[in-house]
Computed example of a mutant assay.
Amino acid sequence: MTVSKKITLGGILSATVLILLYLASTLPTSRLFLLALCSFAVSAVIIETGVKNGIIFYLATSILAFLLVPGKSMAALYILFFGIYGIAKAIIEKHGIGILQYIIKLVIFNLSFLMIYLASGIIIDISDLELKVPFPAWVIVAGLQFAFLFYDYVFTIVITFYYDHIHHDRR
């Protein structure tokens, strides 16, 4: 892929990510779905141009998201998990082995979730919220683990589809 095609791809996908983040911050529903689409864009850049360009893409879209997207919570979710996960997944699956891949992915997810939780305490005072959750915290955390594994499974399906139907090997 030529340099101009890489720049064009990065520009188009950056605009797409920013539009999706804007929609996620303004629409009342489908926020997680829109955030997941943003993470797929990062993976498309990695597939087409490599991990190094994927990292540059993630950094650029993260800065732009923080500066341009109203509702900083969606930008924070992109920066702390959804944007970076495509990079982490590519690296882990390239070098990881079997079950160790899932352990590393779960560690990354839980660290990201912890950072999101701590960041949300900075943005809003959590103690002021009166959340009435009918489940103990451990049930919610366990449910999040399964939700993440499902997300990772769907992510793998999307990447496989991209390789099979969109990406053309340019060797």
Rank of each mutant, 00 (worst) to 15 (best):
K5C: 08
I7Y: 09
I7R: 04
G10L: 00
G11K: 08
G11A: 05
I12M: 09
I12E: 13
L13G: 11
A15T: 03
A15F: 00
V17F: 10
V17E: 09
I19M: 10
I19E: 03
L20W: 07
L23F: 07
S25G: 00
T26W: 02
T29Y: 06
S30Q: 06
S30I: 06
S30T: 08
L32Q: 14
L34M: 10
L35C: 01
A36T: 07
A36I: 04
L37F: 03
L37V: 01
S39Q: 09
F40H: 05
A41N: 11
S43Q: 13
A44V: 12
A44P: 10
I46N: 08
I47F: 05
E48G: 12
E48S: 08
E48H: 06
N53V: 14
I55M: 02
I56H: 11
F57V: 00
Y58N: 09
L59P: 04
A60N: 03
A60D: 00
A60T: 01
S62K: 02
A65T: 00
A65Q: 00
F66R: 03
F66S: 05
F66K: 01
L67K: 06
L68Y: 01
V69C: 01
S73D: 05
M74I: 02
A75P: 00
A75Y: 01
A76C: 02
L77Q: 08
Y78W: 06
Y78I: 04
L80N: 01
F81K: 04
I84P: 15
I84L: 08
I87K: 05
A90V: 12
H95T: 15
G98T: 12
I99G: 14
Q101P: 12
Y102K: 15
I103F: 07
I103K: 07
I103S: 08
I104L: 12
I104H: 12
K105L: 14
K105C: 10
L106H: 14
V107A: 09
I108D: 12
N110M: 12
N110L: 11
N110S: 14
L111T: 15
L114F: 07
M115D: 15
Y117L: 06
L118V: 07
L118R: 15
A119G: 06
S120A: 14
G121P: 09
I123K: 10
I124C: 14
I124K: 14
I124N: 14
I126E: 14
S127Y: 07
D128E: 03
L129K: 03
L129A: 13
L131Q: 04
V133H: 11
P134F: 05
P134W: 03
F135H: 03
P136Y: 01
P136H: 02
P136V: 00
A137P: 10
V139P: 02
I140V: 02
A142S: 04
G143F: 05
L144E: 01
A147Y: 07
A147W: 07
L149S: 04
F150G: 12
Y153E: 10
Y153N: 10
Y153R: 08
V154I: 03
V154C: 07
T156Q: 13
I157H: 09
V158G: 05
T160H: 11
Y162T: 05
Y162C: 05
Y163T: 08
H168S: 15
D169M: 15
D169V: 12
D169E: 15
R170V: 13
R170H: 12
R171T: 15
R171G: 10
